[in-house]
């Protein structure tokens, strides 16, 4: 695919919740750069990234061969504007597993954008994204799932939940399902809310100070996104890295 040298604007559907200021001044070469990943048939490839500081523009184009497996886990916690975008094409029986967390305050805009192409039968995908925002920050998840005409027995799931710690923070999600096959399972769910005050009070009544109570609840909340990481040490490291930012940055 040839990329146009022009810059997208927030009028483009895939960029509608992005940081407009960034888009007008972005370097087209950086913005239009895609990392290419080829997962050979039957093999497993895992990306685990914590984008904890600085601006991020990371776009991945992944092709997963027959029966292969691509796993991506990411935390976005830094930068004024950060976007991690994954376009993955699944061959027969392939699997895509995605877990993402956005966490930030100030006026940060943090987003995950995925395009999952079920091109052939029996492929599966599972995506879990959690957003924790405060200040004036925004967390976004745009997830498109495309199921081709002959991609029967596709099983695709997508789940987004956001917690807004303060008034002024926001979260956007846009699930898009394009299904051309008739024997498929596609599930998606989204919820945006606040920390459970009842649970906070219950913890306080047992002696847990508010800041620890909040951390415990956020840990449990974002833990969902890393649940599919089979490597215990990696899962714990991703969680710890993310939570450490809560200590230094949150209100």
């Amino acid at each position: 695919m040839v990329e146009a040298a022009t810059l997208p604007t927030t009028r483009d559907e895939d960029w509608r919740y992005s940081d407009g200021e960034y888009l007008t001044s972005a370097d087209p070469a950086e913005l239009n750069h895609w990392r290419m990943i080829e997962v050979p048939a039957g093999e497993t490839f895992r990306e685990a990234e914590s984008y904890l500081s600085g601006q991020t523009m990371d776009r991945l184009r992944v092709h997963v061969g027959k029966g292969g497996r691509f796993e991506a886990f990411a935390t976005i916690a830094g930068g004024k504007y950060s976007r991690v975008e994954i376009e993955v094409t699944l061959e027969e029986g392939a699997h895509f597993e995605f877990g993402g967390v956005t966490l930030g305050g100030g006026d940060k805009v943090q987003e995950f954008v995925t395009r999952t192409i079920h091109a052939h039968p029996n492929a599966t995908s599972n995506q879990v994204v959690r957003a924790v925002q405060w200040g004036q920050a925004t967390g976004n998840f745009l997830g498109r799932i495309e199921v081709a005409r002959d991609a029967q027995k596709t099983d695709a799931a997508q789940n987004f939940r956001a917690i807004l710690l303060e008034k002024g923070a926001s979260a956007n999600t846009k699930p898009e399902l394009e299904i051309f096959a008739d024997d498929v399972l596609c599930a998606h769910g989204a919820a945006i809310g606040q920390l459970d005050e009842q649970a906070s009070y219950y913890m306080a009544a047992r002696g847990i100070p508010p800041e620890i109570a909040r951390k415990l609840m956020i840990q449990a909340f974002i833990g969902d996104a890393f649940e599919a990481i089979t490597d215990d040490a990696l899962r714990e490291r991703m969680l710890e890295d993310t939570l450490a930012l809560l200590d230094t940055e949150a209100v």
């Binding site: 459970d196 219950y202 847990i208 415990l216 449990a220």
Partner: peptide, 19 residues
């Protein structure tokens, strides 16, 4: 008593006792 999804009793009580 309130439900706290994702937090185990062990974790909850240890945090409470140590706090």
């Amino acid at each position: 008593p309130v439900e706290i999804p994702g937090v185990s009793n062990v974790q909850f009580l240890r945090e409470a006792l140590n706090a």
